[in-house]
């Protein structure tokens, strides 16, 4: 089992070098755990990120039946957002514009891999 505190510790590892926030969201878009400068920002990021994800996920299914959305990169004037899945949750990183997209994606992927295993085990356990 992954303790809530341990999850926050893992998320915190990513908030270096210009990454402003790291969030783990459930399938409804509610933040399960997050590191962010402000709670309010975290809720805004969470709501919008999960909306964007589900929209593109649907888009993709319409375009090509068997293909799944794996990663989203949202580029804005004053920052970038990376979103990917971890088990049945969403992982979202919000970064300042000086964080290059490559490193943002790499950090997101690394975090996702790190979190995937314990959460998969949990999901399997609760299903049996």
């Amino acid at each position: 089992m992954l303790k809530p505190k341990a999850i926050s510790q893992v998320l915190k590892q990513a908030t270096t070098g210009g990454v402003k926030a790291t969030l783990l969201l459930n399938s409804e878009g509610s933040p399960l755990a997050f590191i962010s400068d402000s709670d309010r920002d975290a809720r805004v990021y969470a709501a919008i990120a999960s909306n964007i994800w589900s929209t593109f996920e649907k888009n993709g299914k319409n375009l090509m039946r068997d293909d799944n959305l794996k990663f989203l990169l949202v580029e804005c004037e004053k920052g970038n957002v990376a979103i990917t899945t971890v088990s049945n949750m969403l992982l979202c990183l919000v970064a300042k514009p000086e964080v290059e997209l490559g490193i943002l994606k790499a950090k997101t992927d690394a975090l996702a891999r790190h979190l995937e295993e314990p959460f998969q085990r949990m999901t399997t356990y609760t299903q049996t």
Partner: peptide, 20 residues
Amino acid sequence: IADEHGLCLGAKGIVNPNSA
């Protein structure tokens, strides 16, 4: 340094990160 998607992992000096 660029990743396998052509995205910049880091750049220093006179290189423009956008050229990744």
